[in-house]
């Protein structure tokens, strides 16, 4: 369910860009961070086979995130306003690299990158949320995108509990980062459920 929600979020994002011929309201910085997240985590595509499903999803997430970046940078460039997308990503990249160096399952390059990508994914939404807060409102379709994206990691949580009891497996790095990631959406979810899903416009209180 988490993966499908993630998949759906990207389909909604592409649908929004296509139908409005615009990437207004979408943070380029957040999208660029996702490319970095997928490239650093899914490098194992080349040596660690899990399943056809796993491989297909990895390829899709890398390809679609690069494609979104292309759409924003070239095809719909005039519709992107960098002056409201001002979050400093350095504040995220540095700490995530440090977290990757401290918390990892083996002190080797690919494992550090994996951990880095997990932490970075947890906070990659911040430029987007920061932008949302600056503009104070969003198109409904954009909020559906964010809701699906936020729900994705939240839906992993029951699965982690299931695996803890069922398979006796726990991945503390993914769990802690996943909880942080989900937590960052709580404010957004509150407004989404109380306004957008009640048919009102997404507007933040002044």
């Amino acid at each position: 369910a988490g993966d499908i929600s993630h998949l759906a979020s990207i389909v909604i994002l592409l649908h929004k860009i296509y139908t409005s011929h615009s990437c207004r309201g979408i943070s380029f910085k957040t999208q660029a961070l996702y490319v970095l997240v997928f490239l650093t985590r899914y490098l194992d595509l080349f040596w660690h086979w899990v399943s056809l499903y796993n491989t297909a999803m990895k390829v899709f997430f890398i390809a679609s995130s690069v494609y979104v970046l292309y759409l924003m940078k070239y095809k719909y460039r005039p519709t992107h306003d960098p002056s409201i997308d001002t979050f400093k990503v350095e504040y995220l990249l540095g700490p995530c690299l440090i977290l990757g160096l401290i918390f990892n399952y083996e002190f080797k390059f690919t494992e550090i990158l994996w951990s880095f990508s997990i932490w970075l994914e947890a906070v990659a939404i911040l430029p987007q949320l920061f932008m949302l807060q600056r503009t104070g409102e969003a198109e409904a379709i954009t909020t559906h995108y964010l809701a699906a994206l936020g729900a994705y990691r939240a839906l992993y949580i029951p699965n982690w509990i299931w695996r803890y009891f069922g398979d006796n497996v726990v991945d503390p790095i993914a769990v802690v980062a996943g909880l942080v990631q989900t937590g960052l959406y709580l404010d957004f979810f509150y407004v989404y459920f109380t306004k957008v899903l009640q048919g009102q416009k997404f507007e933040l209180p002044a």
Binding site: H6, V50, S51, Y105, E106, Y156, V169, D171, A174
Partner: peptide, 10 residues
């Protein structure tokens, strides 16, 4: 496969 954890999630 001797990965310390599963890494089988996305």
């Amino acid at each position: 496969d001797d990965l310390p954890v599963f890494h089988d999630e996305l």
